[in-house]
Design a protein around this nucleic acid. Structure first.
Lengths: 152, 152
DNA sequence: GAAAGTAGTTAGCTACGCTAATTATCGTAT
DNA sequence: ATACGATAATTAGCGTAGCTAACTACTTTC
């Protein structure tokens, strides 16, 4: 690959943006971490629950892949969520090895509350911005999501 | 402060941006997590090291505050970093209770490599964007950092 | 129906987070 | 000068989260 080379200016720009975006995302999320303690749910459990709520029922292996952890780790996360009645499992009628995880009503409610708290905290911090700045951020989120999808 | 502006339109916009920004930041960082395994350093240790490298020597308590963990947790993080010769402590000459942590040359090098890997991965994903889009992202990072500073 | 493959669990380890209690030092007030 | 309260850090002990290796229980394939 001929290192597609645009100008050195562009190279600098991409680099600069990558660097700053990286830092900004870290700092932004760090500031919201505080809100999570109120839910009584740990971050990994919250994250699993959010997959089940937003993407629907999933097998243990699918969840492990989605969360980028190994299956034994997911086994225990699910066990914890089950004990708190936030998730239920349902056996697959055609394949005796697998069972599908479902968020319970309680689990869904807990997740949505926690998420709302985080978003509310972020919202509060954005309140000082002008409509024009908010628009910039809005377009930036679009670009960020596109970058996530982009080929590694 | 008189709770300025509360039109439904603006309310909707802030809310929308908060929601999307929250998700986008999570997704963006999740995609970069893979790169970290190569450093041999765990995320919490990497983070502590980055404070020392970019903000300079700090006491254990200051580090704990910066990383939002309790002091005993920081004690062990530092012990781990010390064992790998990534951090050294230096006694405070005036106060016998405290010692200041310094990143060693090895620690600084390791951190910068790890960070470079993450940024390079992000950079690769941003390469498809136009200069105009990059500019939008650049301005957005500015706004994000400002939001982080904003009063909770 | 035996062998190979797949989904999930168990066992056992390290790391990270916490609180409570302890040690050592500092500052201050008597 | 000493004694007392405050502060910095560590130790002890607990639960959760991550891993690998080894196991069980099914499915698929030949």
């Amino acid at each position: 690959m001929p290192k597609s080379r645009a100008s050195p200016e562009r190279s600098t720009q991409v680099d600069r943006v990558a660097n700053r975006l990286h830092s900004a995302a870290i700092h932004l999320l760090r500031g919201l971490r505080v809100e999570d303690t109120l839910s009584g749910l740990t971050a990994p459990r919250m994250s699993v629950l959010s997959v089940l709520v937003f993407a629907g029922p999933r097998t243990l292996g699918e969840l492990a892949a989605a969360e980028q952890v190994r299956r034994p780790t997911m086994t225990r996360l699910i066990q914890g969520l089950e004990k708190d009645s936030l998730v239920r499992r349902q056996a697959d009628p055609t394949d005796g090895r697998v069972s599908r995880m479902h968020a319970t009503a309680k689990g869904r409610a807990l997740l949505l509350e926690g998420r709302a708290r985080r978003v509310a905290a972020l919202r509060k911090r954005l309140e000082g911005l002008s409509p024009r700045d908010l628009d910039t951020l809005d377009r930036a989120t679009e670009l960020m999501e596109r970058a996530v999808q982009a080929p590694a």
